[in-house]
């Protein structure tokens, strides 16, 4: 067990956990932030995607010990009022079916738009293909990303 002071959604949060604990479980079990989802535990589905200094990473493969001073952003901190362009576009396109994967989808999409404000279809495919949607909402996700890009 070790104590970590983590910068999450702009606040410093202290946790006392084993150094191997993935950020996914630190968020979900220790900090009661369940917006970040468990899907596979092996970085294959993207449900656990968060931002590490603005870049999308799979939190199931991110041990708490390597985070250091890097800032973590989760779906709960993507915007204060649920009005990030990606969140608004997701609502506009009524993207979700079951909704379980969508936190991860939106975090990947927001990260993509940070670095590439006008992505092409193939840019979107490349950035988003690590995020599985079992309900098959890919088409709406793509449309939503394009809408968010012009906002």
């Amino acid at each position: 067990m070790a104590t970590y002071n983590l910068k999450i959604n702009g606040k410093i949060r202290q946790v006392n956990v084993d150094s191997s604990t993935p950020m996914l479980w630190v968020l979900r079990d220790h900090l009661n932030m369940p917006g970040t989802k468990y899907g596979c535990g092996i970085a294959q589905c993207g449900a656990c995607t968060v931002h590490l200094d603005g870049t999308a990473v799979r939190s199931c493969q991110l041990p708490v010990s390597v985070v250091g001073k890097q800032a973590i952003t989760t779906i709960e901190g993507l915007s204060a009022k649920g009005d990030h362009p990606v969140q608004k576009a997701w609502l506009e396109h009524d993207v979700a079916q079951c909704g379980y994967c969508q936190s991860g989808q939106m975090m990947s999409a927001a990260s993509l738009l940070n670095t590439n404000p006008k992505p092409t279809d193939s840019d979107i495919d490349a950035a988003m293909s690590g995020n599985i949607c079992r309900c098959g909402t890919y088409l709406r996700i793509k449309e939503a990303i394009k809408s968010a890009a012009v906002k």
Binding site: T74, G82, L91, Q102
Partner: peptide
């Protein structure tokens, strides 16, 4: 008509069994 739970989904609110505490 838009999904009534849309805003909860996009803001990551606890809604699923796995989120239950």
């Amino acid at each position: 008509t838009k999904n009534v739970e849309g805003l909860k989904v996009v803001t990551g609110k606890p809604m699923f069994g796995l989120d239950y505490r």
